[in-house]
Simulated scan of single mutants.
Amino acid sequence: MHALLGIIYHSLGGVASGSFYMPFNKVKGWAWESFWIVGGLFSWLIVPPIAAYLTIPGFFDIILASSSQIFALTFTLGLCWGIGGLTYGLGVRYLGMSLGNSVVLGFCSAFGAIVPSIYYNINPTAGKVSFTDMLASSGGQLVLVGVVVCLVGIALCGYAGMLKEGELSEEDQKKSVAEFSLVKGLVIAILSGILSSFFNFGIEAGKTMAESAALLPDYLFEGSSHLFQNNVSFVVILWGGLTTNLIWTTILSLKNKSYKDFGNKSTPIRNNILFSALAGTTWFLQFFFYGMGESKLGNGASSWILHMSTIILTANMWGIYRNEWKGVAPKTKWTITIGIAVIIVSVVIVGLGNAM
Rank of each mutant, 00 (worst) to 15 (best):
Y9H: 09
S17V: 13
S17F: 15
F20L: 08
K26M: 11
W32C: 03
E33G: 00
W36Y: 15
F42S: 10
V47N: 03
P48D: 09
P48F: 09
P48K: 08
I50A: 09
I50N: 02
L54A: 12
D61C: 02
I63M: 13
I63C: 12
L64W: 08
A65F: 11
S66F: 05
L73Q: 12
L77T: 09
G78H: 12
C80I: 15
L86D: 02
L86T: 10
S102C: 14
L105P: 01
F107R: 04
C108A: 14
S117T: 14
N123Q: 10
V129C: 03
D133C: 02
V145I: 14
V145K: 06
L156P: 02
A160V: 09
M162E: 08
L163R: 08
Q173N: 12
K175E: 10
S176T: 10
I188N: 01
S192W: 10
G206N: 02
E211M: 12
E211A: 13
S212I: 00
A214S: 11
G223K: 01
F228Q: 01
F228D: 01
F228S: 01
N231T: 11
S233N: 13
W239R: 00
T244H: 01
T250S: 13
L252T: 03
S253Y: 02
P268K: 00
I269F: 02
A277P: 06
T281C: 10
T282F: 05
L285A: 15
L285E: 12
F287Y: 14
G293H: 09
G298P: 12
L306W: 11
S309D: 07
I311Q: 07
W318I: 06
P330S: 07
P330G: 04
I336Q: 11
I338R: 05
I340Y: 01
V348S: 02
G353T: 07
